[in-house]
Simulated scan of single mutants.
Amino acid sequence: MATWAEFAAEQPDMAAFVQGRFAADRHALIATLRKDGSPRISGVEPDFARGELWAGTMPDSLKSKDLRRDPRFALHCMTTTASMTEAGDAKISGTAEFWTDKTDYLKDLFERTGWDPGEFDLFRFDVTEVVQLTVEGDGMVVLSWHEGRGTRRVGKK
């Protein structure tokens, strides 16, 4: 598994694009797996901080329980237009780690935002796949990175 910093060091332009897409609307969608293996889609606010990808959840929420039981996830930025001509699209997949020592994260969060979220469950995400979709001319370009395989670019009309 790669940390966000490791991915960003390998693919700085792609990392900047993806972070920008998630920053454009802090709200994103995360897919987790229920006990029976079926998918669950929930809202989340990812945070790129200290070279890591983080997200908090309400304590013991279903999303938190899903990630603690099975750490696999898929994260999708908010897409603002169906055509994606303005900004593009971004997705991240990997595994989540339940983080019990929140002291440093909370200090950093407060210094950056002035916000104290109160009680929450914190997860740090490692990435195995990152996907960037953009529109170029009359086609779509999919740039995908997979850990250990590098990037692949596919054009679709």
Rank of each mutant, 00 (worst) to 15 (best):
82 A>D: 03
33 L>K: 00
8 A>D: 12
17 F>N: 04
136 E>S: 12
10 E>W: 00
135 V>L: 02
154 V>H: 12
137 G>C: 03
92 I>L: 14
85 T>F: 08
123 F>L: 06
60 D>T: 09
138 D>I: 01
63 K>M: 08
157 K>W: 00
69 R>W: 05
29 L>Q: 13
148 G>Y: 09
47 D>S: 02
83 S>I: 00
1 M>P: 05
62 L>Y: 00
47 D>L: 07
54 W>S: 09
9 A>E: 10
102 K>E: 14
49 A>Q: 15
2 A>F: 05
19 Q>S: 01
69 R>V: 05
10 E>Y: 00
102 K>T: 14
126 D>F: 08
54 W>F: 08
29 L>D: 08
16 A>V: 02
84 M>S: 02
16 A>H: 03
62 L>M: 00
81 T>K: 01
140 M>V: 09
44 V>Y: 00
156 K>Q: 11
104 D>E: 13
8 A>L: 13
79 T>K: 08
25 D>E: 09
8 A>T: 10
132 Q>H: 04
70 D>M: 04
106 L>I: 14
24 A>V: 08
109 L>Y: 12
38 S>E: 12
16 A>T: 05
94 G>V: 13
82 A>N: 02
94 G>E: 15
9 A>Y: 06
131 V>G: 02
22 F>Y: 13
60 D>V: 09
70 D>H: 04
79 T>Q: 14
22 F>S: 09
157 K>P: 01
130 V>L: 09
153 R>P: 02
63 K>S: 07
119 E>D: 15
49 A>T: 12
145 W>N: 06
11 Q>E: 15
63 K>Q: 12
125 F>L: 12
16 A>L: 04
61 S>E: 00
150 G>N: 12
39 P>V: 02
43 G>A: 15
143 L>D: 13
43 G>T: 10
105 Y>W: 11
40 R>W: 14
130 V>T: 10
31 A>P: 01
148 G>S: 04
117 P>T: 15
146 H>S: 11
23 A>T: 10
19 Q>M: 07
138 D>P: 03
108 D>S: 14
11 Q>C: 12
76 H>G: 01
149 R>I: 01
8 A>F: 11
93 S>G: 07
12 P>Q: 10
116 D>S: 11
16 A>G: 04
43 G>Q: 13
82 A>R: 06
63 K>F: 04
21 R>E: 06
126 D>Y: 03
2 A>S: 10
42 S>W: 07
10 E>A: 10
133 L>T: 10
124 R>F: 04
152 R>L: 12
44 V>E: 03
114 G>P: 06
49 A>K: 14
4 W>M: 14
139 G>K: 01
73 F>P: 02
26 R>W: 15
74 A>I: 11
121 D>K: 07
19 Q>V: 02
120 F>K: 05
77 C>T: 15
90 A>K: 03
125 F>G: 02
5 A>L: 08
6 E>S: 12
142 V>G: 07
40 R>Q: 15
75 L>T: 07
116 D>A: 13
109 L>S: 04
106 L>H: 15
122 L>F: 10
25 D>N: 08
34 R>H: 13
144 S>D: 07
75 L>Y: 04
138 D>W: 06
28 A>E: 11
3 T>E: 14
50 R>M: 14
106 L>F: 14
28 A>D: 12
139 G>D: 02
16 A>K: 08
72 R>D: 15
68 R>C: 13
13 D>E: 15
53 L>M: 11
